[in-house]
Design a protein around this nucleic acid. Structure first.
Length: 493
RNA sequence: GGCCCCAUCGUCUAGCGGUUAGGACGCUGGCCUCUCACGCCGGUAACGCGGGUUCGAGUCCCGCUGGGGUCACCA
C-alpha cells in the first residue's frame, strides 16, 4: 500500500492540527485532531496546533478561543501551539509573513513561481465571460503573467509555475498511492498582494519548518495534496507522510459544514455528553478495532492505528452517538463518581439547586447511572431528591394521588416513622407486610407512593429512593401525598 | 464538466479466497418487574450491477452504475 510500512521507525512523529479559526470546532475537525493526537500519544511524539488565520476576513480571535476551549474540554492537549508556545513560535500564520515572503522569493528566483499582476477584477471578469459562454465550464487561470518580465514594484500576487506534463503522486497511509496528472493543475496562487499566504503555501512552509513528519487531515484535502507535493519538490524539501481521513458526512450524506450548528463540539458539551463519550464516537467513525465499540482514553491511545482507518465516508448518526455517550456515563469504570458528580452539579445549579448535599448525591448516583442519558438528563433525574416539596407531575398526581390512596400513604408513613433501621431491606419488608396484611398487590400502592415521594410516575425503586431521601423526608412526603389525595377529593367533590 | 476517492444490514462497522456474512446503534417480540431504566433472550435487515481470474469470490482485476470530495487572491 505504501512504501513505508512503519511511519515511526526511528524518530518520534510530529503531527499537527491546523484549524482555520472561522467558526466553532465541529466534530469532523475534532476527529481529525483526535487521530493526530492519538498517534502522537501512542508513539511518544509531539502534537502541535497551528492556527491558519491567513484569511483575515474569516478569522476571528473568538473562534480561536472557541476551538482551543473545545479541544481542551475533550482532553486533547498540545505540546506546541497557541498559549503553550514552543520552539517554532509563533503558531499563528498571520504572524509568519516574513517567512513566507522569503520562501516565495526563493521560489521566484529558482523559476518555480512568478509574480502575477492580474487584478481580482480582471480575473473575475474573465470568469464571468467564460460562464456567459459556457455555464458549465470551469475557469482555469490561463497563465497570463507566466512569461511577463519581473516587476517586483507593481502590486502582485505570486503564482506557482505548475509543471504541464508528467504526474504527481504521493503515498497515503490510508488511501495508498494517489496519482494526479499535472496538466490538470493550474498555476495556483501562493501569496496575496497583501503578503499573506494562501493555504497551500502556508501549510507546506509551516509543516516543513515545524518538522511535521505526518500530515493527517480530512479527505477533502486530498485534492490539493499534489499541489503541496509540487511545492515540496520545488523547494527540495523532504515530504512528510500523508494520511487522509474518510469524511464525516451529515445524515443526509452532504458535507458536514461548520455552518451546521448542530455538529459543534460545544453543543454536545452543553448537552451533557462527557469528553470520552464524544471521543469514543469520533474514534469509531472511520476507525475500528474488531468488534469493540467502547474505549477508554488509554484504550484508544493503545489501539489506534492507521491501518485500521477505513476509506469510505460515513454519515453522522445522532442516535449512535447518544448511545456511546450514555455507555460512558453509565459505566463507573469509564466515568468515575467524582467526575460524574462534578459534571452534573452545574446542571443542577441551572435548575436552581445550589450546593446539593454531597452524601445525598453520592447515594443517588448509583440510581441514576443507568437511567440518565447525559448529564443534563442526570440533573432531571436527580431533581426530586433535592427539592422540597418535589415538583409534581400534574398528570401523575391526578392519576395516583386519589382519595382511595390516602389511607395507604398515612398508614405507611406511620410505620416508617418508627422504623429504626431505615435500610432498603427493612423498608421493603414494611411494604410486603403491608400488602400481605391487606391482600394487596404491590403495584396497587407502588404508584401512589412513588408519586408522593418523587412527584413522578417513573423513578428508581421505591426503597432505594427512600434510603436516599432519608426517613424524615420520606415520611413527610408520604403524609403530604396523603393530604394531596384528600384535597383531590375536596376539589373533586 | 476535469481530476481524485469510495461502495457489506437504514446507520457505524468486522471480514484481509473457503464464514450459517459477525458486532453495535436503530426498530421490534419476549423475560425480569413497584414504575422507569438497566440487563437478558429472540426477531428485522447487507455484500449495487455485469464481466472476468480461480476448484472456489463479499474478499483479486476490468467495466458500468451510484455516492462523495475538489477544481478561489477559502482552508
Amino acid at each position: 500500500m505504501t512504501d513505508s510500512s512503519s511511519p515511526s521507525s526511528t524518530k518520534p512523529p510530529r503531527v499537527r492540527f491546523a484549524p482555520s479559526p472561522s467558526g466553532y470546532l465541529h466534530i469532523g475537525g475534532a476527529r481529525t485532531a483526535l487521530f493526530n493526537w492519538l498517534w502522537a500519544k501512542q508513539q511518544g511524539g509531539s502534537f502541535l496546533i497551528r492556527i491558519e488565520d491567513t484569511d483575515q476576513d474569516r478569522s476571528s480571535i473568538e473562534s480561536v478561543r472557541a476551538i482551543l476551549d473545545s479541544l481542551r474540554w475533550l482532553g486533547i492537549d498540545w505540546d506546541e501551539g497557541p498559549e503553550v508556545g514552543g520552539p517554532h513560535q509563533p503558531y499563528f500564520q498571520s504572524e509568519r509573513k516574513a517567512l513566507y515572503r522569503q520562501i516565495v522569493e526563493e521560489l521566484i528566483a529558482r523559476g518555480k513561481a512568478y509574480r502575477c499582476y492580474c487584478s481580482n477584477e480582471e480575473l473575475n471578469a474573465q470568469r464571468e465571460a467564460l460562464k456567459a459562454k459556457d455555464p458549465k465550464a470551469q475557469f482555469v487561470y490561463p497563465g497570463t503573467c507566466r512569461d511577463r518580465s519581473d516587476q517586483p514594484d507593481l502590486p502582485h500576487a505570486v503564482r506557482f509555475k505548475s509543471p504541464k506534463s508528467g504526474a504527481t503522486s504521493f503515498d497515503d497511509l490510508v488511501f495508498g498511492t494517489i496519482t494526479t496528472p499535472n496538466d490538470t493543475q493550474q498555476d495556483f496562487v501562493l501569496v496575496r498582494p497583501n503578503g499573506l499566504p494562501l493555504y497551500n503555501l502556508g501549510a507546506v512552509v509551516d509543516d516543513h519548518v515545524m518538522e511535521i513528519t505526518l500530515v493527517a487531515r480530512g479527505r477533502d484535502h486530498i485534492g490539493n495534496t499534489p499541489q503541496q507535493v509540487m511545492l515540496y519538490e520545488a523547494m527540495g524539501w523532504e515530504k512528510p507522510q500523508f494520511a487522509h481521513l474518510p469524511m464525516m458526512l451529515s445524515p443526509k450524506g452532504e458535507k458536514l459544514s461548520k455552518r451546521h450548528a448542530s455538529v459543534s463540539v460545544s453543543e454536545y458539551r452543553d448537552k451533557g455528553y462527557t469528553p470520552m463519550g464524544v471521543l469514543n464516537y469520533l474514534a469509531r467513525f472511520g476507525w475500528s478495532f474488531g468488534d469493540q465499540e467502547i474505549f477508554s482514553r488509554e484504550d484508544l491511545i493503545e489501539k489506534f492505528s492507521w491501518e485500521r482507518v477505513g476509506t469510505s465516508d460515513g454519515k453522522f448518526d445522532e442516535k449512535k452517538f447518544a448511545d456511546v455517550a450514555f455507555e460512558h456515563l453509565k459505566t463507573p469504570a469509564l466515568t468515575d463518581d467524582a467526575t460524574y458528580l462534578a459534571g452534573v452539579v452545574p446542571y443542577l445549579a441551572q435548575a436552581g439547586i445550589e450546593q446539593p448535599s454531597r452524601e445525598k448525591l453520592a447515594l443517588a448516583l448509583p440510581l441514576i447511572r443507568e437511567r440518565a442519558r447525559d448529564l443534563k438528563d442526570a440533573a432531571q433525574h436527580l431533581d426530586f431528591y433535592f427539592r422540597e416539596p418535589p415538583t409534581f407531575d400534574e398528570k401523575a398526581r391526578q392519576k395516583q394521588l386519589v382519595p382511595a390512596a390516602a389511607g395507604h400513604l398515612d398508614t405507611l408513613a406511620d410505620q416508617f416513622a418508627v422504623l429504626t433501621d431505615f435500610s432498603a431491606p427493612e423498608i421493603e419488608k414494611v411494604f410486603h407486610d403491608y400488602i400481605a396484611k391487606h391482600a394487596l398487590e404491590m403495584k396497587v400502592i407502588a404508584q401512589p407512593v412513588r408519586v408522593a415521594l418523587t412527584g413522578r410516575a417513573a423513578s428508581p425503586g421505591l426503597w432505594d429512593v427512600m434510603v436516599v431521601l432519608g426517613r424524615d423526608c420520606s415520611v413527610t412526603r408520604l403524609r403530604r401525598g396523603a393530604d394531596l389525595c384528600r384535597s383531590t377529593a375536596l376539589s373533586a367533590g
